[in-house]
Simulated assay, not measured.
Amino acid sequence: MSVSKLRVYDHCNNTMQALQMQRGNKLHCDVTILVERQEFPAHRCVLSASSEYFNKMFSTKMSEQFKKIIEIKGINKRAMAQVLDFIYTDTIELSVENVQAVLHTASLMQIQDLLNLIIEYLFDEISGENCLHFHNLGRLYSLENLMKKAEECCLENFDTVCVQDNFCEIKLEDFEKILKSEDLIVESETVVFESLMRWTEYDLDARTDSFQRMFQHVRLQLLDAEYIFKEILNQELVRVSSVCRDAIDSALYFHVDP
């Protein structure tokens, strides 16, 4: 006797659509998620299957395992609504305005499929104007791929990045990584030096000691001797540092005998 394995390809989709309708009509829902005083009926089994956060909550001896209403703090009710819709429909609308709130909620609830979708969206939206912000998001939520993409964008668009309002808040190790990179692209090395001065002067007391260390990454040999004399040697931070002056001497010697 032959055995045939048959499949209805829309069965799973149809089932989830039915569960979504049940959720909308508050049918057969066995848990209510409360966010900012708004109630969201849902099914424990669906939440557990989609979210490691809920899976642990409902399968361990946490107090929430037996509660009918579970309050979640620290998230946005609109983001919660979107995340629940994604769990039931695998679809979500993302924009610059809502992506951070959705990312926060998806990260908290450990919904990997949604996190992957958000990263894909951010990859398409990343630019010189926002790459520092996206890099911070990647660090905050431990998204290594997003951090790497943001770093690449920063190196390719440093002329734009270094004039952003939040540039001077960049961490020392991140700034040094940029200046040391062989992939750094700038219209002129003056951009690098002037960005270093602006970054240092933003918090002079805390960053003075780091200045000469960072100064060594400026490619002085790419600068005109006139610019070095008129602009760089006139800086007090440079004049008081023997390390900076030695680097300048080497650069000037290069101009004499390249």
Rank of each mutant, 00 (worst) to 15 (best):
A150Y: 04
T160Q: 14
E194M: 14
C153T: 13
L146H: 07
D159F: 03
V191Q: 00
K180M: 01
N166G: 13
L155E: 05
N234T: 10
F167H: 09
L132G: 01
R198W: 06
V192E: 06
W199C: 10
K149E: 11
E129C: 07
R213E: 09
A206C: 01
V191H: 02
F229E: 15
I178H: 05
L137P: 10
R239K: 07
R239M: 11
F158T: 05
N145R: 08
I185H: 10
R219P: 01
E129K: 10
S181N: 11
D174N: 03
A225M: 11
M214W: 06
E182R: 13
V240F: 09
T160S: 05
I170T: 14
I185G: 02
Y202N: 14
E201W: 13
E182L: 00
E194R: 15
I126S: 04
V192I: 14
E236T: 10
F175C: 05
L179G: 01
E156T: 03
S241M: 09
C162T: 05
L204D: 09
N157M: 03
E226T: 15
N234G: 06
D159Y: 03
I126V: 15
L222G: 15
K171F: 15
I170E: 00
W199I: 06
E151K: 08
V238F: 06
E231K: 15
I178L: 15
E169G: 12
L220T: 02
Q216H: 10
V218W: 09
C131G: 10
S127P: 03
Q216Y: 13
D205E: 02
H217A: 12
E187V: 02
F123L: 12
I178T: 05
L146Q: 04
M197Q: 08
V163L: 13
E189V: 00
D205W: 03
L122R: 04
G138V: 01
E156M: 08
K149I: 02
H217M: 03
C154V: 11
V161N: 08
L137I: 00
F134P: 01
V192S: 02
C162Q: 14
I170W: 13
M147I: 07
N234M: 12
L184D: 04
R139T: 12
Q164N: 15
N166E: 14
L204V: 14
R219A: 01
C154L: 06
Y202M: 06
L143R: 05
I228M: 13
V161L: 12
L184I: 07
L155V: 01
G128R: 10
E144P: 01
I228Q: 09
E236Y: 03
F215Y: 07
L179D: 02
L184H: 02
H217S: 09
S195Q: 06
K177R: 13
A206F: 12
E125L: 09
Y121C: 10
T208H: 01
G128D: 14
N234W: 01
E176P: 02
L237A: 12
S127Q: 04
E182N: 14
D224Q: 15
V191C: 10
N166R: 13
Y227N: 11
N136V: 09
E173L: 11
E189T: 14
L233F: 05
E151D: 09
A206W: 04
S195M: 12
A150D: 09
N145P: 00
D124Q: 14
S127T: 09
Q164E: 05
C131F: 11
V240D: 08
N166Y: 13
E176R: 11
S241D: 01
E187N: 13
T208L: 11
L196V: 03
L184N: 03
E169P: 04
V186T: 06
H135Q: 10
W199T: 02
